[in-house]
Amino acid sequence: MKKIILLSAIILSCMGFANAQSYSYGDNMRQIYSINYQINVPMGSSKDFISNASFEGVNFNWAYFLTDNVAVGMDLSYNNYHKSIGKEIYRPNENMAINAAQYRYTQVFPLKAQVKYFFNPYSLVKGYAGLGIGALSAGQHIVVQDLDSWDNNWGFLVAPEVGVLIPFGENSPFGANITAGYNFSTNKSSICNTSSNNRQSFYFNVGMYVAIY
C-alpha cells in the first residue's frame, strides 16, 4: 500500500511538473495538484477508542477550476492513529477475564469529491472554503501480544474545510498549501468492548502545490 501511495505521489508530481512548463503569470489557474503532510485530532467517539492525535498522515488533492472562483476535484488522505494502554483487566462476560496491555491503532482512508470556492482568485495569496463528500474507510485494531482483533468499516463522509495557497514567488506555479477541516463520517464499529457510531476529526494539512495554467 505504501508503495502505491508513493508511486501515486511521484506520478502526480511529475504530471504537475511536466504540464507546468507553459504557465505564465496572470493566466487563470486551471488545475492545482497538492501533496500535504496531515495531522488529525480525533473528536467524538473516535476519541474514546484512541485519544491521541495522529501525526502520521498524508494527503493528496486535485482541483479543477470550473470558473475563476469555483473548483471541483478529489481528495485522498491516509492517517494512522495509535496508542498504548497499560495492563487492564477486561471482562467480555462474567465468565471470562483477560489481564493485558493493549496496543490500539486505526488506519483511516478518507476519499472525497470536493468543491472549493476561491474568495480572491487573482490575488497572489488565495483563500478558499470547500466542502467534500465521499467515503471513509477505517481499520481499527486492538493488539494484545500477537493477538489482533480488528474491525474494518466504511462510512459516508462530509468534510468542510478552509485553506490558503501561498506561491513561492510571483511567477512561480509552486507554492505552499495550508488547510484546516473537519471530517465527519457515519462509520460504525464494534471491537472487543468498544463501540462507536461515527468518526470525527479535525485535520490540518501543510504541503506543497503545483498549479497548471
Binding site: K2, L6, A9, I35, N36, Y37, F55, E56, G57, V58, N80, H82, S84, K87, M96, A97, I98, N99, A100, A101, Q102, Y103, Y105, H141, V143, V144, Q145, D146, D148, G207, M208
Partner: peptide
Amino acid sequence: LMSIWVTSCSWGPGDLDQTQDQILTVA
C-alpha cells in the same frame, strides 16, 4: 514532506513489539 511521512509511520509487524513482552493472563 516525504521524509516526515515515511519515517513517522509504524506498519504491521512493528505493532507486535508494543505488547509482546507484556504478560497476558486469561481465565
